[in-house]
Design a protein around this nucleic acid. Sequence first.
DNA 1: TCACGTATCCAAATCGTTTTGCATGACAGG
DNA 2: CCTGTCATGCAAAACGATTTGGATACGTGA
Lengths: 336, 336
Amino acid sequence: MHGSGRVKIVDVAAAAGVSATTVSHVISGRRPVSAATRARVEDAVRRLGYQADPSARGLRTQRTDTVGLVVPDITNPFNTELAAGIQAVAYARGLLTVVCEAPMTGGPQLPAVLGQLTARRLDGIVLGRFGARRADLDLIAGSGARLVRLGTRIADGPGDVVRGAETEGMRDLVRCLVGERGYRRIGFIGGEAGVEPGGERYEGYRQALAEAGRAVPEELVAWTGFTREGGRAGAALLLDAAEPPDAVVCANDLIAIGALDVARARGIDVPGRLAVTGYDDIDAASMVSPALTTVVNPAREIGRSAARLLVDRLDGDTGPAREVVLTHQVVRRASA
Amino acid sequence: MHGSGRVKIVDVAAAAGVSATTVSHVISGRRPVSAATRARVEDAVRRLGYQADPSARGLRTQRTDTVGLVVPDITNPFNTELAAGIQAVAYARGLLTVVCEAPMTGGPQLPAVLGQLTARRLDGIVLGRFGARRADLDLIAGSGARLVRLGTRIADGPGDVVRGAETEGMRDLVRCLVGERGYRRIGFIGGEAGVEPGGERYEGYRQALAEAGRAVPEELVAWTGFTREGGRAGAALLLDAAEPPDAVVCANDLIAIGALDVARARGIDVPGRLAVTGYDDIDAASMVSPALTTVVNPAREIGRSAARLLVDRLDGDTGPAREVVLTHQVVRRASA
DNA sequence: TCACGTATCCAAATCGTTTTGCATGACAGG
DNA sequence: CCTGTCATGCAAAACGATTTGGATACGTGA
């Protein structure tokens, strides 16, 4: 047991009988070092358990080897999977990942959290699915951090983009309901108004109805929040309508689970009297009963892609902004 | 829009007509500064949007204002809630939180992850529920980081401890099964052998049986893993026993959900022919059907407590090691 | 007037790396 | 033997903040 965190590069240099410069070169490989010296240095590093001080290194190199992920709700399993995907790729590159929550309501808001993060001089930031303002994006870009946005369009601002084929996914799902299943009155429960991917998914819902020559039943559309609680509120609203729906399309799985809560509480049979569908296919989607018909959104893969974009940029890629679109897939289960 | 991240303390000093020293003193408050100068400096900071470089500051102060949480499974909702609790307290103190996953099997193992974290010179580390070796704990303590361990005993090593009353919680739960419900053959599915809180919970199960004058039915005890998949494997094992159980007590909710999967697949009525119970009361516990009878483990509060301990230590508390024990509560739902 | 505190502010040293420009020695070609 | 090229390693200057020991000016009391 040595002094642990206390050994510095000059100690290693002394132990190996060389200068600190040489130790640095051995470690970074930026200049050639003879095999014999290299071996002595590497041995000394191992023996003393040397680990470079990240503050000192960061001060000199102007990099922190740290990337951040900002999401509106850290307990949403979609975001958790996302984080896991990012972390896997980042860790392999020696990057540390910090996940921050910037709740849509209550708690520190997005600009405040971004301020904290830019103050930290992160090398890169993945911005989760928000209704982010242009000023927020410019703040990140201006801080020098590479930016990857999730679930929006490339034209909306600086940085690269990763997104699922949200509109197409929802369209395919609603097509099933309209076509083979023959549901007549199909309602929609979105998340917070104006927050992606609510808009994209609503658009898919609208398109599928339009294809069948139907209009959106405005009185059966509710915008609440991307949570189980939001789903409860939205479902209550829709079911109290003068002419209630026989199917409810939800903007994500949590909302759908909330809708199921309401159906059960009111003794409404699902899918007999009411169909319910979700989006994302989080783990819980297959746990609830009836199991949710939903659309697979490959959260982990989205995270991996985002991290890869970030890593490429950090490795010097200065090409034009890129947009990665991941495929979707409808999963039919018992709820519709 | 200024150069953003680029403005440094001497720029602020110049703008305010003082020295960098004075700016530092205004910001830290470590030495008195006249009201007039303070106002000029604060104004300059605001106008230029100055944010101190964390690397430079860290190099000088030897602190990173960063704390870490290490968990075996980042997608387990218990751990997510934990992270949220820690982050809330840490954020309020200006500390950044990094959450790292060190899978029990596959992926980077605990010592490797801890190596990465100690290399980062974190100010504090919360170690999730692992079967951590003494050497791992000493590594953390030796790195200078404050340590808070979760779900173990204070005597097991350095650092403070936060834990739920695991043994008591499980004992109360199993008492219900034995007593009012009158289940005869009660099995147990644990997580990975030797990993807390599996042992504590098993102990509660054993005690409740002992109180009733019963021995543990060894052939109905399985140790798998704290996941849904682990639950499936364990349940299959128990149900294939010569004399199968009429109740299965699971070491956490994910395991219980896996057990429910098996019961459904085999057409076994729950709770009619088989009772299933969990532990932790994660969100999903009330989503599945039948809803899980389980024990509330206040994950978020555990996180908050852990972070508070850490913050106290960082603020100079050098008292003896502390142990915080949080209460439990049995929740009766449909599955038993 | 002198000695001495007090209130303000500043200059310079320091934290532990990385990086750049040189110095040295060896070696090859003429 | 002389001269240019490599290969190798070192010294010193950053990086941007914090902290310590003074310096300066102004009262205050004797």
